[in-house]
Nucleic acid binder design. Structure first.
Ligand SMILES: NC(=O)c1ccc[n+]([C@@H]2O[C@H](COP(=O)([O-])OP(=O)(O)OC[C@H]3O[C@@H](n4cnc5c(N)ncnc54)[C@H](O)[C@@H]3O)[C@@H](O)[C@H]2O)c1
Ligand SMILES: NC(=O)c1ccc[n+]([C@@H]2O[C@H](COP(=O)([O-])OP(=O)(O)OC[C@H]3O[C@@H](n4cnc5c(N)ncnc54)[C@H](O)[C@@H]3O)[C@@H](O)[C@H]2O)c1
Lengths: 246, 246
DNA sequence: GGACGTTTGTGAATGACTGCACAATCTGTT
DNA sequence: AACAGATTGTGCAGTCATTCACAAACGTCC
């Protein structure tokens, strides 16, 4: 799922001799990590409703997953439930938040402020989850200098400066696809180690850098595939012609 | 991945007695379906470069996957390669397009034209991949009547009309989270069977309806998790304290 | 036309994830 | 203090996904 393959020893100063091993030992499975934010969101909603305790069954339903899965997922974080009772909403919220890293307040840079980038920059949902937009970068002279929520858009040439000043390690790329790889290279060179990419391109990055891609077209095509299968009865005929074993 | 749990027999008129079984028989694995659009994108780029034949190795690299995986994925569609040579770019493009359903031109409705919805509506990348925005829906009196790319925004009350007229079965939800479930219910009731949801909520829909969620906050939290693990040396200490077996 | 290098398609091995089923553990009640 | 009901945490088996490794098939060159 992640595009990171930590085969080389990291250049970090970390104490561990074999990082890979440690990661595998303690590491929360990718599939679980991907679900933790969902649980967190559900817990937040529950918290606002003054619910202070919840069972795995109820929380699982709110999150749209199997309850055994929920329990197993949570068990990777520790034993934070009480048998016969359930989970304390506030406490669990805290623990998942800590595991996921929203305890910190992560500074984030957005590169490319066209349609999409601007929408993202305006999005308030960021802040409520431990992220803070601290840098806006574009190349268009028409955009540079403009302010969004009080934050001025800087030129690409000032990228180094912005990264250094804000200490951001997470960046969002919302430039046209052609520019994305160059931007990513530059970001990585400046020390950014996590990239959320909205441009429809496969980014190539060194080990140790995490990339996640959000691709609207891709999502729609996946939906279209299922849509097509619903109507297409001929898919069953095709099934016969191929030797589908077992 | 999909939030659809086809436990009950679908209320559809489809011929198959056990949909689940049929799907499993011929069905292309979910993981593969999710990658097909990536291959398609890579092929499109290659096609523009006048490359007419490509090996699994080269295409796999462009798509960022293992070459064996690419071949296996493609083998679900049929045997479209030539041993010793590779794949014909145009032909393969056609075949994947057909499988994924971009051969049709899918009409799509967007509900909620705030920051994000407007950006989506303006996005031209839609059209180039077999999707056509045919309906825009919002509740805000300030937005209703406004035009985006020549298409007028309709009020929510006209939703039925719009769906019926356009025959759309795919919809994008970009409303605030609070409104999302109600909108989804309404859409489903009107015959929409695929939803791309940008609101940070788990949508509950009947069997047979496909939902895909795009959640920015979630993506960032996943990045933050990995970020945290990179720096956090204490994670190793924590690893010890928990009884991590074997 | 046969030998050679290349590349596909796929069986089989390995690995990751999911869901079931149940013992362990808790609260409240009699 | 023992019991009943509820709910967690987890071993295990089944399912799904990835990767390896190689025979089968192709084009080319001599
Ligand atoms: N708009 C959408 O709804 C949408 C949806 C899905 C994907 N996308 C993708 O997201 C990306 C952005 O989409 P958009 O609609 O906002 O496009 P856009 O053209 O409106 O915006 C792109 C912005 O990036 C800036 N830019 C170009 N090169 C740059 C560089 N090297 N460094 C910094 N900034 C640079 C441009 O000046 C422009 O402001 C595209 O790759 C698009 O395919 C957009
Ligand atoms: N803006 C972003 O970058 C961003 C990023 C990630 C997720 N999101 C999510 O996407 C959704 C939309 O975000 P946004 O920034 O565009 O919000 P927004 O407030 O700008 O837009 C919401 C729009 O939905 C309309 N609306 C409200 N109720 C409606 C209903 N019942 N039917 C139809 N339309 C309705 C509103 O009139 C408004 O125009 C939110 O759920 C948000 O959390 C946004």
């Amino acid at each position: 799922m992640s595009h990171t393959f930590p085969t080389d020893p990291p250049s970090r100063t970390a104490a561990g001799q074999h990082w890979r091993t440690v990661a595998t030992l303690k590491g929360i499975p990718d599939a679980t990590v991907a679900r933790l934010p969902v649980y967190l969101r559900a817990l937040n909603q529950l918290g606002e409703q003054r619910i202070d305790t919840i069972s795995s069954g109820a929380l699982a339903e709110a999150a749209g997953v199997n309850s055994a899965q929920l329990r197993k997922d949570l068990s990777y974080l520790g034993s934070y439930g009480t048998r016969g009772v359930g989970y304390d909403v506030q406490y669990l919220r805290l623990q998942i938040g800590r595991a996921v890293g929203s305890a910190h307040d992560w500074p984030v840079i957005i590169v490319g402020l066209g349609n999409l980038g601007t929408a993202l920059a305006n999005y308030s949902g960021f802040y409520s989850h431990g992220f803070r937009v601290v840098g806006l970068i574009d190349t268009s002279p028409e955009l540079v200098g403009k302010r969004i929520h009080g934050l001025a858009i800087s030129d690409l040439s000032e990228l180094e400066d912005v990264v250094a000043r804000t200490g951001a390690v997470i960046a969002v790329i919302a430039t046209p696809a052609e520019a994305a790889q160059a931007v990513a290279d530059r970001l990585v060179y400046l020390g950014v180690t996590s990239i959320l990419n909205f441009a429809p391109t496969v980014l190539v990055v060194p080990d140790g850098v995490n990339v996640r891609k959000v691709d609207l077209g891709q999502e729609l095509q996946i939906l279209a595939y299922h849509e097509q299968r619903k109507t297409d009865d001929s898919s069953q005929v095709l099934a016969e012609s191929r030797g589908t074993s077992s």
